[in-house]
Each structure stands twice: as structure tokens, then as C-alpha cells.
Amino acid sequence: MKLWQRLMCTARRRSPWLFHMNAGSCNGCDIEIVAALSPRYDAEQLGVRLEGSPRHADILCVTGPVTRTAVNAVKTVYDQVCGPKAVVAIGSCPATTNVFIDSRTLVGPLDKHVPVDVYVPGCPPRPDAIIAGVARAATILAERGNNPPKTEMVMAETVKPVEEVQP
């Protein structure tokens, strides 16, 4: 049993599959994620695979300051990823909402809605920073296993439709 757990721990560390979720990003971080998988940086050396379906993924990579239209999609996709899972916030936007702070179309930052494990700051972050963040998330995943994330999940406040918001 102990051996199986150690094997599983190694397997989780060495096989992080990503699902990339755009929550209203300007595409800058998305391009850098693609660059991280491209020949120069080649994240597949670490076993990283970009998956098409959130059901297959271990690590949810979110880019963008969570917009009013994207927030429900983010929560749905987070629930669709099967545990054990980790969330990586790519770029400054999901961490702090960046230059869009106080915008009335945003409900970010990301950690108000889903528990975030690793922040990769930058606007956009370099591909090697993204790979380092994913590797860190994979280590967290391996240590945590099936236990729930330590950070308490903050319940999102109800989102009003755009029409009701006073400028």
C-alpha cells in the first residue's frame, strides 16, 4: 500500500496534463502557454500534455481577469476537472486583475471563485516561468493527493447582469 502511494505520488508529479482556460484574457498569456509547449521550451519533457477536455486534465491553467461572462464557465470547468486537481493562475490578470482593476465588467481576481495553488505573475509571463509554475503545481498535486486544497474556497457573490450596474 505504501509502495502504491509512493508510485502514485511520482506518477502525479511526472504526468501533469493541462487544461487551458481563457477567462477574458487579452491572448498574451495564451500565446505564451503555446510557446511553452513549442520546440524551444518543450514542456513535454516534464510529461506535460495539453488536453482538449477538462475531464482529462490535472492542472487547470487560467488566464485573464475573470470577466462577468466568464466566471460561470470558470466554475463549471473547475468542477468538471476530476480530482486530484490544481489551479495555476497564469499572468497578472487572474492574480490581481492587473490594469483592469475596478472595472465594472470584472468579478476577478480568480481566487474569489476557485482555490488557486500557484500564481505565475507577469504580463505576460515568460514560457519558462509558466513551465516552472506548472512543475510546482504538479509537486503540490503529488504531495496533496486526494485531500482537498488547504485554502478555503471563497464563495462567489451573486453576479448581477450588466444592465443593472450603474456606471
Binding site: 506518477a11 504526468s15 496534463w17 510529461g47 475531464r55 476530476c82 486526494n146
Partner: peptide, 15 residues
């Protein structure tokens, strides 16, 4: 890699 992928998938939850 395929071995680690297989082991990891065995340890994941299903909906």
C-alpha cells in the same frame, strides 16, 4: 511517460 500517465489516471476520480 506512458507508464506514469497510466498510473496517474488510475488514481484519479471519475464523475
Amino acid at each position: 511517460q506512458p507508464f506514469w500517465d497510466f498510473i496517474k489516471l488510475l488514481g484519479k476520480e471519475t464523475p
